[in-house]
Design a protein around this nucleic acid. Structure first.
Length: 275
DNA sequence: ATATTCCCCTGGAAGC
DNA sequence: TGCTTCCAGGGGAATA
């Protein structure tokens, strides 16, 4: 569910709710893709004060004042609730942390594709195994058309698969891959190695633009995504092709098509987007 | 090594 | 109304 703009939005909101908070206890209910049993989670978090909340790729890095912290991933349906503790288990609640001021911070995830990792104080976040193999941040200065062109060299996989692979460039999922490819006039099926440098530059510019616009709109709420305590994004109103199967292309009026790549739907305009 | 396929899990919407 | 099928903002393991 959440791609970079959504995770960014959640981070900003979590900061408002949790920075400076002291954790009293923690518990875990039901398994996530990666999870930590209650005993270990509680021992790790107890009496820790939250001093930083950052994003890396689609992960949320929550740092403790004494060092170390939590690495959280929302999977497709993860969401956070921070409210006064009413001691009732919410639907799909997988983890919760009781705070010293009486609030409870909950992580709910219906599909359980999310993850919770512990990062010990002696290990920098970026060296944790969950983060060690990640590629470039798309909004960083290092992510340029030239850099993308060099990553694509010699590759036969479709460009959409490449920009969605977190080993090359992080944070881009199905929505923003489709939107950026449409904006730059590139077919999602184009073999990555076939893209010229100017087209790589156009794609990088489109990726940065669409991510910035989505951040400014608080992300896209299509079915599951919510920021902390249920607030929703608005970028779904600005989508050009994602989910617009059989509707008219906003640029040329021909029908938008839904295809399948790597088991995921690709939405594109067969006339505007060229190989 | 690189590229594809399958699978994890649950719920909502659409189709019959 | 109720049952079945399809689909979903992710990612990793298992195959070719």
């Amino acid at each position: 569910m959440p791609e970079l703009p959504e995770v960014h939005t959640v981070c900003l909101s979590l900061r408002r709710h949790l920075l400076g908070a002291l954790i009293v206890s923690a518990s875990q209910h039901g398994k996530l893709r990666h999870y930590v049993e209650t005993a270990a989670l509680d021992a790790f978090c107890r009496q820790q004060r939250i001093s930083s909340i950052e994003r890396r790729a689609k992960y949320i890095l929550l740092g403790f004042e004494k060092g170390g912290g939590l690495i959280l991933h929302l999977g497709m349906t993860g969401r956070f609730i921070v409210e006064p503790d009413d001691k009732i288990l919410l639907p799909h609640e997988r983890c919760s942390w009781l705070l010293a001021d009486g609030r409870r911070w909950r992580y709910c995830d219906a599909r359980r594709f999310g993850a919770v990792h512990l990062c010990p104080p002696e290990l920098p976040f970026e060296q944790h195994p969950a983060l060690a193999q990640l590629g470039l941040e798309p909004l960083s200065e290092e992510f340029t058309g030239k850099q993308l062109h060099s990553l694509c060299r010699g590759r036969k996989a479709p460009i959409k698969n490449l920009i969605m692979s977190q080993r090359f460039v992080v944070g881009i999922g199905n929505i923003y891959a489709c939107e950026a490819l449409f904006a730059s006039g590139i077919s999602p099926f184009t073999p990555a190695g076939k893209l010229s440098l100017p087209r790589c530059k156009a794609l990088v510019a489109a990726i940065k633009a669409v991510l910035h616009e989505a951040i400014a709109s608080g992300g896209s709420t299509i079915r599951d995504y919510q920021s902390v305590n249920g607030s929703e994004g608005e970028f779904q109103l600005r989508l050009q092709v994602y989910g617009k199967n059989s509707q008219c292309c906003p640029r040329c009026q021909s029908k938008i098509v839904r295809g399948t790549q790597a088991g995921r739907s690709s939405y594109y305009c067969p006339k505007c987007q060229k190989n």
